[in-house]
C-alpha cells in the first residue's frame, strides 16, 4: 500500500507558443502512514504535483501507481481514487457553500453515495476530529473565523474517510496560534488513525517539528529528500533556491563556527536550547 510516482512529467499549454514544463521527471515513493512535508518556493510545482495524486491533473508523461494500480489505466475508477486520496486545496474555506457547517461537511460523503445515517455520522466524526466546538455545527460557515472556516473545509475532506490526506498550505494566512492548532490536529490525526499525510508548505518552520520526511521541490524537480535533520544540514543549498532552514539551524551553525562544540541537527527551539546548554556546561 503506497503511492509511487514513476517519471512524472507535466507540461502546461503544450499546444501554445509558450509551453511551461511544470514537473520534470519526478520519481517518488510515499509509504503508508507516513507524514511527508513537501517544501518549495511559489511556482516550484508542488501544488501541481499534489493535484496529480488524485487524478485532477493528468501527467503528460509517466505513471502513478496507487496501491499497485496504475491510475491512468482506462478502467481505473477515478471517483474511487478521489475518495481515497483526499485533497485540501489552498484557502479551502473558499469552497464552502452550504447554509450551515454540518451540511457542508456532508457534501463529500453524500457524493460517495452513502446513506443519510452514514453521511451524518461521518460528518459529525470529521468535525470532532478537527476540533470544532459543537455549538458551531449549525451556524452558517460564512460567519466563522478564518481558522474555523479552514477546519470546516478540512473536515469536509476528512468526512470522505480518505486513506491519504493532502493538505496544500493549510496554514497560509493564519495567525501563529491558528497555525499551531491546525498542525497539531493534523499530527494527531496521523498518529491516531494511521492516515498518510502530505503537507505542502513553503515554510520549513511549519513542517520541521511534525513530519517524518521532507521533499524539497525546486523548479519542477525534486532537489532534496530525507529526514528533516538531513535536509536542514544542506541549509546552504536550500538558501540558494530561495528557501530557508529553521532559524535554530542558523543559530547552532553560527555557534559552531565560533568555536562552541554543538550538534547542529536540532530542529525545534526546545532541542536547540538543550543542546546549547549541554555544550556550555561541558
Amino acid at each position: 500500500m503506497s503511492i509511487i510516482l514513476d517519471h512524472i512529467n507535466y507540461i502546461y499549454g503544450e499546444d501554445t507558443t509558450t509551453p511551461v514544463h511544470a514537473l520534470k521527471d519526478i520519481c517518488l515513493q510515499i509509504q503508508d502512514g507516513e507524514f511527508v512535508g513537501i517544501i518549495g518556493h511559489t511556482g516550484s510545482g508542488k501544488s501541481t504535483l499534489m493535484q496529480h495524486l488524485n487524478g485532477l491533473v493528468r501527467a503528460t508523461g509517466g505513471h502513478i501507481y496507487y496501491n499497485g494500480e496504475d491510475i491512468y489505466d482506462r478502467d481505473y475508477d477515478m471517483k474511487k481514487l478521489r475518495s481515497k486520496v483526499g485533497l485540501v486545496f489552498q484557502y479551502p474555506e473558499h469552497q464552502l457553500f452550504e447554509i450551515d457547517v454540518f451540511s457542508d461537511v456532508c457534501f463529500g460523503p453524500k457524493n460517495l453515495g452513502l446513506d443519510r445515517k452514514e453521511t451524518e455520522l461521518r460528518a459529525y466524526d470529521a468535525l470532532r476530529k478537527v476540533g470544532l466546538p459543537n455549538e458551531l455545527f449549525y451556524q452558517s460557515p460564512f460567519e466563522l473565523s478564518g481558522g474555523q472556516k479552514r477546519r470546516v473545509a478540512i473536515a469536509g475532506v476528512l468526512a470522505m474517510k480518505p486513506e491519504v490526506l493532502i493538505l496544500d498550505e493549510p496554514t497560509a494566512g493564519l495567525d501563529p496560534k491558528g497555525r499551531d492548532e491546525i498542525l497539531q490536529q493534523v499530527k494527531k490525526l496521523q498518529t491516531e488513525t494511521g492516515m498518510t499525510i502530505l503537507l505542502v508548505s513553503h515554510s520549513m518552520e511549519d513542517v520541521a517539528e511534525y513530519v517524518d520526511r521532507i521533499i524539497v521541490m525546486n523548479d519542477g524537480s525534486v532537489l532534496l529528500e530525507g529526514a528533516p535533520r538531513d535536509v536542514f544540514s544542506h541549509y546552504e543549498e536550500l538558501e540558494a533556491v530561495g528557501l530557508a532552514a529553521p532559524q535554530v539551524t542558523y543559530i547552532l551553525n553560527e555557534f559552531r563556527k565560533n568555536g562552541l562544540d554543538v550538534d547542529t541537527s536540532a530542529i525545534t527551539i526546545g532541542e536547540a536550547a538543550q543542546e546549547i546548554a549541554r555544550a556550555l556546561h561541558r
Binding site: R82, L87, F89, H94, Q95, G156
Partner: peptide, 10 residues
Amino acid sequence: KIMKAQIARG
C-alpha cells in the same frame, strides 16, 4: 480552482 476543489470532494 473551485471546480477542482469540489471534484476532489466527489
